[in-house]
Design a protein around this nucleic acid. Sequence first.
DNA 1: ACTATTTTTTTCGAGCCTCGAATTAAATGG
DNA 2: CCATTTAATTCGAGGCTCGAAAAAAATAGT
Lengths: 413, 413
Amino acid sequence: MVDFGRSDDVRKSNRRRILSVLRHHAKVSRKHISQETGLSASTVSAITSELLDEAVIVSLQGAEDGALRRGRPQVRLSLNPNAALVASAVQQLDRIAVTVCDYAGKTVAEIDRPFKAREAGPEEFPRTLIETISDALATLPPGAGQLERIELGVQGITDVEGTAMLWSPITRYRNIGMKEALEDAFGVPARVSNDCCMIALALHWRDPERFADNFAAVLLSHGIGMGLMLNGELVTGIRSSATEFGHLSHMPRGALCRCGRSGCIEAYAGDYAIYRRATNAGSESAPRNDIAQAEMSGIMEAAKNGDADSIAAFAEAGEALGTGLANMFALVDPFPVALVGHGTRAYGFIEGSLRRAIGDINPYVSGSGIEISCFPDEKPLIMEGCTITALLELDEEIARSTAPHQKIFTDAV
Amino acid sequence: MVDFGRSDDVRKSNRRRILSVLRHHAKVSRKHISQETGLSASTVSAITSELLDEAVIVSLQGAEDGALRRGRPQVRLSLNPNAALVASAVQQLDRIAVTVCDYAGKTVAEIDRPFKAREAGPEEFPRTLIETISDALATLPPGAGQLERIELGVQGITDVEGTAMLWSPITRYRNIGMKEALEDAFGVPARVSNDCCMIALALHWRDPERFADNFAAVLLSHGIGMGLMLNGELVTGIRSSATEFGHLSHMPRGALCRCGRSGCIEAYAGDYAIYRRATNAGSESAPRNDIAQAEMSGIMEAAKNGDADSIAAFAEAGEALGTGLANMFALVDPFPVALVGHGTRAYGFIEGSLRRAIGDINPYVSGSGIEISCFPDEKPLIMEGCTITALLELDEEIARSTAPHQKIFTDAV
DNA sequence: ACTATTTTTTTCGAGCCTCGAATTAAATGG
DNA sequence: CCATTTAATTCGAGGCTCGAAAAAAATAGT
């Protein structure tokens, strides 16, 4: 329950709703906002003129699209691109990417450069990031808005407050603080989030029909991650970021996981697990962490040519994923699933056993009824998720910052 | 985000907050309410006098407790017991219990009588319930309030709307509608909920320190159930009621579960599973569903005397439960756990392997750090959960029903 | 060219609601 | 019996939303 008592909280809430409409639709008239929110035309008029004064939105003259109709034309309103800038960043095993977007969501600068995470010391993570963001900002023309927020997506575990990478597969260092360094460098709020959570937010934003209030995004990569949305809210841990789907127990006392335990889903479905099984290396053998994409392609090729071990490797991966999903479905009923990352290239070899495991474990669910879609490239999704997160936070802040309404009276006639 | 636009929504919200304070503390002064809610004294005065007019609350004269202090004494306010009645019911395998409480939460009538669920036809479930509630109401003196709500707790799966028992271990019939029959019979809103959810709510209400915003209640009985609270909200399925914790996969292709699948947690930790393992009956043998408490006590006795199979039975149960809990902890970080039901009598035999499994699977969590408490008797908890649910719904309805404030002017002097 | 019509947006007054200040109420202490 | 202290109520100010009326800005028709 929202905690509000005074009546200007009503104004804040209505500002929020109006900004939300503007965030969803590029150009909307006051009329449209009024219909969408259920607020009266007078209220919409009052709030939008406030937002115009604050230069949060702009009104677009002319450029009327569509048939000319009789009557006073609707004035289209839009978020003011120059109201702010947000920086989104993705730090991965081998690359670092930064995107700067304006307040209307358009990308205005992009950098994607190599970064050797394994060889980097703990202080290099924030430092490289600060450098890259600075470089991206330097490319902007002087007229652009001010940077207002930074959002970073990384693999691994972060704390719910978004201050640090508690653990990440891309480095052996723990507890690398990011938030504070970024905030000190740029003087604006920053957060670090789990990549899978960002992917889920991006999908929810991209296709709210399919990825509505309940769905999961599963990242199939060297490891296995999940971003889970339930009731329209991202599920995070109580203290740490993510639903560690990859480390659910699939098979007690089973295959060795790179986390050191046995029988995790990842120990069957991660790249290293598939590689290990396909090369018949024994489920207790140490996970390799330097498997090239070409090697995975080789296994797919072998499977295509009927190699029994390769086929079994993918089948066991599918079974582990399916069992894990079935467990999720037992907890909260079935929901659509997005598979993301390069692991989806082998979807053809995985799907059968995955669906069988879902069906096996939960007979109330026809295994084939689950909607599964694949997105091979995770990076743009992570980036999009970071951007939308930053923008929505900004919207929230703007909605809340309602200065006491002051009318200015002048003596002049 | 709460959807509110008009300013009387503020009043509704503040009514809600004041009612919430009154629900938590038996006798509170306006002063205290003002401090607790942060609302001004004048607002509290206005709203409480409204609530007094509506006879939702009463003001207690005299009966001052504590030291007499200088100054005008605080007037204690309380919820008006006669404002309403709510009926709570628990329908189990062998008994049906009904409790009627007044609006202040005091039990005013109770019935607990035998009911043979296995032999009952589908229509007997609502019918027996209606009879028992009627009988309970008949014992009340005429001055008592009006029945306003009915809340039923049952084992098994219900739909999120609370209309029907979709599946329950106490009967072979599916999809037994309860809500409509009860509403038709008594003319007030009714709901049917999963028993474990009610247990979780009761614990949250009883001991908000220990069972705060994140915890789980696990029912150890013939089957295994879970009520899960995250971020202060009960987790339910998308369509059906409950976190089917008992049917998470513990061991793929493992022991036969009474649900027909293999390897569920319940197939290791339910009474029938412990019995099966202790009697060395083979993990594929059909579950017995008529195991008496005495038989379970016998197994505990045997374990106490060193019987290897009995000890193994409990140890395997603990491992299955621990693995399941570790999976939950991987999803949302560790949280306190309440074990509920007669299965907790064997906690001494279960704890070791349970904690080992938690530690095994999640090394970040010292297995012994998880707070586990036992509540052998589940029935009063289910009942309490039903009552508090009904009362809170009533509070919500009363908070919302703010008639347009009408001052009555009379001509008389 | 000019007026009627249509549609959108703004302005204005009424009605709620909360708050702080002032007032009233109800007790104790000397 | 009056001063003091604390609680509760009353009253006016200010903010907010809403509906009605007015103003603005276009087209349609003569």
